[in-house]
Nucleic acid binder design. Structure first.
Lengths: 110, 110
DNA sequence: TATGGTGCTTACCTTTTAGTTAGAAATATT
DNA sequence: AATATTTCTAACTAAAAGGTAAGCACCATA
């Protein structure tokens, strides 16, 4: 058996690449996961860590990621509010994807 | 030095993850690269290999990928036409990205 | 009384992306 | 003469994604 199996299968809706892309393919999704990384991070920090993202997109994506169990959220009943985000076990498994994109970018793109 | 450096840098427009995503983040882009893989493949085959993609998106993406030097294209002056697509050296370097998405999908998604 | 901090929501609008449909080019086959 | 084949183009439409801007809640401090 070859190390890397050659692709001879059609990529229909059940293709694992396609399924991954459905969840992670958004413009900001992997970037957010990458920034959270192994940290416990607050909403505001995250916002500063991703210059250019709008608040709307950031919470929208965060909510989606929480819903999809990539991220967990902890809100403290304080004033002013404090909310911390962390990657779940599943979320941590996406880090290699971001890493490889980072590597590819560093090695091959201007 | 840790094996994986913790992310403490803001992801601005120059972030390598972001640059990679700009080129590869489209709905069909990585899927097309994944299907071409190490093959020499014709337009029609590719179309059948990716059920659901429209002809417009397929050639649009292929043209972009050729422009970005991920894919090379060879047209034979025959009737009916025959056009073959292959990954360039650069294109081959994207395969690990698709592979890791495939693995992630297989291991973690329904 | 006004202002600030923090996390978020909402309504609206623009841009981007994607899908649909029709067809062209050129030759071989029926 | 009509039809099929293959790759690709163009015009149009629809849907998805993303951006802008305003504001709310609640308490603290100025």
């Amino acid at each position: 058996m070859k190390k890397t199996q050659k692709n001879i299968f059609p990529s229909d809706e059940n293709c694992p690449v396609r399924r991954s892309l459905t969840l992670l393919g958004g413009k900001w999704t992997l970037l957010i996961l990458f920034q959270i990384n192994e940290r416990v991070i607050r909403y505001g920090e995250l916002k500063r860590a991703i210059p250019g993202i709008s608040e709307k997109m950031l919470i929208q994506e965060l909510n989606l990621l929480v819903e999809h169990k990539f991220v967990s959220k902890k809100a403290y009943p304080e004033i002013p509010p404090r909310v911390e985000y962390t990657l779940t076990k599943l979320g941590l498994k996406t880090l290699p994807i971001a890493d490889i994109l980072a590597t590819f970018g560093l090695e091959n793109l201007t």
